[in-house]
Design a protein around this nucleic acid. Sequence first.
DNA 1: ACAAACTGACCGTCTGGACGGTATAAAGCT
DNA 2: AGCTTTATACCGTCCAGACGGTCAGTTTGT
Lengths: 184, 184
Amino acid sequence: MRKPEKLEELLSAAHQVVSRDGIARLTLELVAREAGVSKGAVLYYFSTKNALIGAMLQTYLDWHFIEWQEKLAQEPETPGRALRSLLTVSTCPDEMDQRGGAGMLAAVANDPELLQIIRTRVTEWDALLHKDGIDPTITLLIRLAIDGLKFCDLLGIAPPPQEARSQVIAFLQNLATPETTKTE
Amino acid sequence: MRKPEKLEELLSAAHQVVSRDGIARLTLELVAREAGVSKGAVLYYFSTKNALIGAMLQTYLDWHFIEWQEKLAQEPETPGRALRSLLTVSTCPDEMDQRGGAGMLAAVANDPELLQIIRTRVTEWDALLHKDGIDPTITLLIRLAIDGLKFCDLLGIAPPPQEARSQVIAFLQNLATPETTKTE
DNA sequence: ACAAACTGACCGTCTGGACGGTATAAAGCT
DNA sequence: AGCTTTATACCGTCCAGACGGTCAGTTTGT
């Protein structure tokens, strides 16, 4: 009678609701219906709505970090490793990324305090990036561009076409590669 | 018994509420209280809550476009004018920018359909940028970086310190200036 | 006097969450 | 092996507060 995967199910259902109906409709009951359980069940797993949203954020952040570290391991050990792997991860958006977006929107809409979870994590990651041996201005530029891309996609505001997107990424990859080690 | 400046007052009050209490608390009653009128008064000017949010968006977009065009007029007539002036505008965030952010958040939280207003405008502006004579990849990069900056500021997620910020802007200004016309 | 500007009481609906109950399975007891 | 206890997983009902919006009426300017 163990059910840790039920948790995952509910999280996924929540994300589904948000991306189909919008955050305004992220209600405990709709999440329950989407997952095929009762509202009571949702509250059994997440004692409060905020807890649900927090979990959406948390699981996304964990996933994203792991994904990043995996790509990082494959990157040659030259300055800019962390930046290049982060760019690689950002190129291929996953369903998990949508969950992150949904979680962020839900957080903003319900209790901005929840954003604290993201704030501390991103600040940590930013510190890692700045130990990467690349000019801090370039580092910041890359981070901003990635965020901008996520932002456009999230709200559907003039999201760039695939080709333009990959060209920008390529340009940034180049900026994150030190001159002395370039092979191409 | 004049109307138009009362409208502005209400819009400003709405923005105040959002930035102080969060979008979740953007309620007709709170806006009314903030502006020192009754809820009925708010509904007298904006027949619906969506209309209020729409107006927040609209006034911001109008203001932003005008600001941009003013800076553009001061820019030397070389390729990249539009980009450089846009960057200049984005350097010095105004209270109006916050209203734009508040409006966007409110739109997302209440009725994502409202984002359509932004979508069409930004798409238009993007078209203008691409007639600016600068490599489309650079153009996109600059737009993304600006959006990323707005995004970080809006949610308070690792907003870069002032100095780093102006260095990135300077870097981008440089990218938006054709080689042949550089004077510095 | 007449319209525009504004009020405040009221209503219907929605939603988070509390709560008491139920089914199921495992553990303990004999 | 049979019976009781207990903890887990979940259901369905109910409620109190909040919020958008309506409306009949009142004030204010001209």
